[in-house]
Amino acid sequence: GNIFIKNLHPDIDNKALYDTFSVFGDILSSKIATDENGKSKGFGFVHFEEEGAAKEAIDALNGMLLNGQEIYVAP
């Protein structure tokens, strides 16, 4: 299952995104959108192997604080 994450703190990188979401299941890919200079655009995507893991991550993390910013997590 794919999920979309927005309002990410600029310091959150691909590894931090992966580490945050990997507790919910096996991740096939995770990516933070960046500009041409490699600076985070504040949103990203995680693709879980299983749909159930994606739903669990959405339920658990939507509205949670990550590096002091409330993140939005949705399908």
Rank of each mutant, 00 (worst) to 15 (best):
I71C: 08
E36L: 10
A53Y: 11
K41E: 04
L28V: 05
V23M: 13
I58D: 03
I27V: 08
V23A: 08
G1A: 07
L28M: 12
F24S: 02
E36Q: 14
G38Q: 11
D19C: 12
E36Y: 14
S29R: 03
G38E: 10
I27F: 01
L17Y: 03
G44M: 01
P10Q: 15
S22W: 08
D59V: 10
S30Y: 06
N14T: 09
I71K: 00
K41S: 04
E49L: 09
I3R: 00
D26I: 08
L28Q: 07
D59S: 10
E51R: 13
L28W: 08
N37M: 15
I27D: 00
A53T: 12
T20A: 14
N14H: 10
M64R: 06
D11I: 09
N67T: 13
V73M: 09
D11Q: 10
I58S: 07
P10G: 08
G52I: 15
D35H: 13
A74L: 04
N14G: 11
E36T: 15
G52R: 12
L61M: 06
V23K: 05
G42L: 15
A57C: 09
S30R: 02
G38L: 15
F48Y: 12
G52P: 10
A33N: 07
I3V: 10
D11G: 08
A33F: 03
A60L: 09
T20V: 07
I58N: 07
K39R: 11
Y18L: 10
L66Y: 09
D26Y: 10
G63W: 04
A16N: 07
G44W: 01
E50G: 10
T20F: 05
S29I: 02
Q69R: 15
N67E: 15
H47C: 03
G38R: 14
F4C: 01
N7C: 09
K39D: 10
D13G: 07
P75D: 04
S29G: 02
N14M: 08
K6P: 00
D19I: 11
K41Y: 06
G38T: 07
A53L: 10
H9V: 14
D11Y: 11
I5T: 06
L8E: 01
D19V: 12
S30N: 06
A54E: 04
E50H: 13
D11A: 12
K15P: 07
F45A: 02
G1D: 03
K15W: 07
P75G: 15
D26S: 12
I58F: 07
A16I: 06
L65A: 15
A33S: 09
D59Y: 10
L8R: 00
F43Y: 09
P75H: 14
V46E: 01
I58K: 13
F45Y: 11
H9L: 14
E51G: 10
I12P: 01
S30M: 03
I32F: 03
G44A: 14
S30H: 05
I27S: 00
N67L: 08
G1S: 07
I5D: 00
T20C: 11
D35K: 12
D35V: 09
L8C: 05
E56P: 06
F24R: 02
G63V: 04
K55R: 13
N37I: 11
A60H: 05
E36S: 09
L17T: 05
L28E: 02
G42P: 08
T34H: 04
A53F: 12
E50I: 10
S29F: 01
K6H: 03
F21W: 05
N7T: 06
L66V: 14
F24T: 01
Y18V: 05
D59E: 15
K55V: 13
K6A: 04
Q69L: 15
P10N: 11
I58R: 11
T34C: 14
F43I: 03
D13Y: 04
F4L: 02
A60E: 13
N67P: 02
E70H: 15
S22C: 09
I3S: 02
L61Q: 04
L8F: 11
D13K: 04
K15H: 08
E50L: 09
N2R: 01
A16E: 04
Y18H: 13
D26C: 07
V73H: 01
E70V: 11
K55H: 09
G38V: 08
K55Y: 10
A57F: 04
L28S: 08
L8V: 12
G68W: 06
F4G: 00
M64G: 08
H9F: 08
I5L: 13
V23I: 15
G25C: 03
A60S: 11
F43H: 08
E56T: 11
N62Q: 13
E49K: 14
G68R: 13
G52V: 14
G25V: 00
N67K: 11
F24G: 01
V73D: 03
I32V: 11
D13C: 09
K31S: 03
K15I: 05
L66R: 09
L61Y: 05
N62C: 12
I32N: 03
A74E: 03
A57R: 01
A74P: 01
N62Y: 12
E70K: 15
V46P: 01
A57V: 13
Y72E: 02
I27C: 03
G42V: 02
F45M: 03
E56F: 04
K6L: 01
G68V: 06
V23P: 05
V73C: 11
I5M: 11
L17K: 01
V23E: 10
L66M: 13
F4T: 02
Y18I: 06
F21C: 11
M64S: 06
H9I: 13
I27M: 03
A74T: 08
D35C: 14
G44L: 00
N67M: 06
I71F: 08
I5P: 02
L66T: 08
I32D: 00
H9E: 08
S29V: 01
H47E: 02
G63F: 05
H47V: 01
P10F: 14
P10R: 14
D19Y: 10
F24W: 11
G38C: 08
Y18W: 07
P10S: 13
N2H: 01
F45H: 06
L66E: 08
F4N: 02
N2F: 00
D11L: 15
S22F: 09
H47S: 03
K39E: 11
I58L: 11
A60V: 12
E56G: 09
E56Y: 10
K39M: 14
Y72C: 06
A33D: 04
Y72S: 05
E50K: 14
K55G: 10
N7Y: 08
L65F: 13
A60D: 08
K55I: 12
K39S: 11
N67W: 05
F4W: 00
I5R: 00
K41M: 06
H47G: 02
E49Q: 13
N2C: 00
D19F: 09
G42D: 04
V23Q: 06
G25T: 01
A74D: 03
N62K: 14
F24I: 07
A54D: 05
E36G: 14
K31L: 06
A16T: 14
I12F: 05
N37A: 13
V46S: 04
L66A: 09
V23W: 05
N7M: 07
I3N: 04
K55N: 11
F43T: 02
N62F: 11
G63I: 02
G25H: 00
S29Y: 01
E51P: 12
G25N: 02
G42A: 12
G25A: 06
K41N: 05
M64P: 03
G38D: 10
F21Y: 06
L61K: 05
N7R: 15
N2Q: 02
I5K: 02
N7S: 11
Q69I: 11
F45N: 03
K31A: 04
L66S: 10
D11R: 07
E51D: 11
D11P: 03
E49A: 12
K31P: 00
N67H: 07
Y72A: 09
I12S: 03
L17M: 12
K41A: 05
Y72Q: 06
D11F: 13
N14I: 06
S29C: 04
A53R: 10
H47T: 01
F48P: 00
N37E: 15
T20N: 05
I12T: 04
Y72N: 05
V73R: 02
S30K: 01
H9Y: 08
P10A: 14
I12G: 00
A57G: 06
E49V: 12
G68I: 04
D13Q: 06
F43P: 00
Y72F: 10
I5V: 09
A33Y: 01
F45T: 01
T20I: 06
N2V: 00
S40N: 15
Y18R: 13
T34I: 11
H47P: 00
F4I: 02
G1N: 06
D19Q: 13
I71M: 14
N2Y: 00
L66W: 06
S22P: 01
F4A: 01
D59Q: 14
V46G: 04
Q69T: 15
L28K: 06
D26P: 07
A57P: 02
T34F: 08
K6C: 03
I3H: 02
M64V: 11
I27A: 02
A54S: 12
T34Y: 15
E49Y: 11
G25F: 00
A33L: 02
